[in-house]
Deep mutational scan, measured.
Amino acid sequence: MTEYKLVVVGAGGVGKSALTIQLIQNHFVDEYDPTIEDSYRKQVVIDGETCLLDILDTAGQEEYSAMRDQYMRTGEGFLCVFAINNTKSFEDIHHYREQIKRVKDSEDVPMVLVGNKCDLPSRTVDTKQAQDLARSYGIPFIETSAKTRQGVDDAFYTLVREIRKHKEKMSKDGKKKKKKSKTKCVIM
């Protein structure tokens, strides 16, 4: 069974824990209790493949930012979460993405942009803004509501699919490099 290491990042209060708990335990946590770091595991079937999701729910508070490099190193894919009623959390996505790329030393890291709290009427981040940002990053965008469960499975499952595509691409690139290195030079 394939294991996928997913990391949920975003500013404090955007609903990272609520999304994760909704996926794992099928219930909505409405009281806000700032996370330092929590880890969850769940076995699911995605596109006919049974897999184990190892999900790291991270601290959004700035005082825990020193811990970010460590979990970013171990993560295979990242859910970059903002709240649709919090423009600052949307603007912060850029910083999370840049930090992930720096730590992973790669421009090509599996990510999904997630606009959470889409059940709320007080939207300050337009869907088109988020779609445009995701398009500019070359990553999928999904709106979710941890409260109603809308888009929750889709967000995590899409990230797994992005990781699969990335692994497939990397193995193809690896095979191309191996083929090239088999060419021999004969000096007579």
Rank of each mutant, 00 (worst) to 15 (best):
T2A: 07
T2D: 13
T2G: 09
T2H: 12
E3H: 05
E3V: 04
Y4Q: 04
K5W: 04
K5R: 14
L6V: 10
V7M: 05
V7P: 02
V8G: 06
V8E: 05
V8D: 08
V9A: 10
G10H: 06
G10E: 05
G12E: 05
G12H: 10
G12Y: 06
G13P: 15
V14E: 13
G15A: 10
K16I: 00
K16D: 01
K16G: 00
S17A: 00
L19F: 07
Q22I: 02
L23W: 13
L23I: 04
I24C: 11
I24D: 06
N26M: 15
N26H: 15
H27M: 10
F28H: 01
F28R: 00
V29M: 08
V29K: 15
E31M: 03
Y32Q: 00
Y32I: 00
D33F: 14
D33H: 14
P34F: 13
P34Y: 02
T35I: 01
T35R: 00
E37R: 00
D38G: 00
D38H: 01
K42S: 06
K42N: 06
Q43P: 02
V44M: 03
V45C: 04
V45P: 02
V45R: 10
I46P: 02
D47P: 02
D47T: 05
E49C: 05
E49L: 03
L52H: 08
L52D: 02
L53G: 02
L53W: 03
D54Q: 01
D54L: 00
L56E: 00
D57W: 00
D57E: 01
T58Y: 14
A59E: 02
A59T: 15
Q61G: 15
E62P: 08
E63A: 02
E63W: 01
S65Y: 06
A66M: 05
Y71W: 15
T74L: 15
T74E: 07
T74P: 15
G75P: 12
G75N: 03
G75W: 06
F78C: 01
F78W: 02
L79G: 01
L79H: 01
C80G: 04
C80S: 04
V81W: 04
V81A: 10
V81C: 12
A83R: 06
A83V: 02
A83D: 15
A83M: 05
I84C: 13
I84K: 12
T87G: 09
I93N: 08
H95Q: 15
Q99L: 12
R102H: 12
V103D: 08
K104I: 14
K104R: 14
D105G: 13
S106D: 13
E107T: 13
D108F: 10
D108V: 08
D108M: 13
V109R: 04
V109K: 01
V109C: 09
V109D: 03
V109A: 10
P110K: 01
V112E: 01
L113Y: 09
V114I: 09
G115I: 11
N116V: 15
K117A: 14
K117W: 15
C118T: 12
C118V: 12
C118D: 11
C118P: 05
D119L: 03
R123P: 08
T124I: 09
V125K: 10
T127C: 09
T127L: 08
A130C: 12
A130Y: 13
A130W: 12
Q131G: 12
Q131P: 12
D132H: 11
L133R: 06
R135D: 14
S136K: 08
S136P: 12
Y137E: 05
Y137T: 07
Y137F: 06
I139G: 05
F141L: 06
F141S: 07
I142F: 10
K147E: 09
R149F: 03
Q150L: 11
G151D: 09
V152D: 05
D153C: 08
D153E: 13
D154Y: 08
D154W: 07
Y157T: 11
Y157N: 12
L159H: 13
V160H: 05
V160F: 06
V160G: 07
R164Q: 04
K167M: 13
K167L: 12
K169S: 13
M170K: 13
K172E: 09
G174W: 14
K177V: 08
S181C: 09
T183W: 13
C185R: 15
I187Y: 15
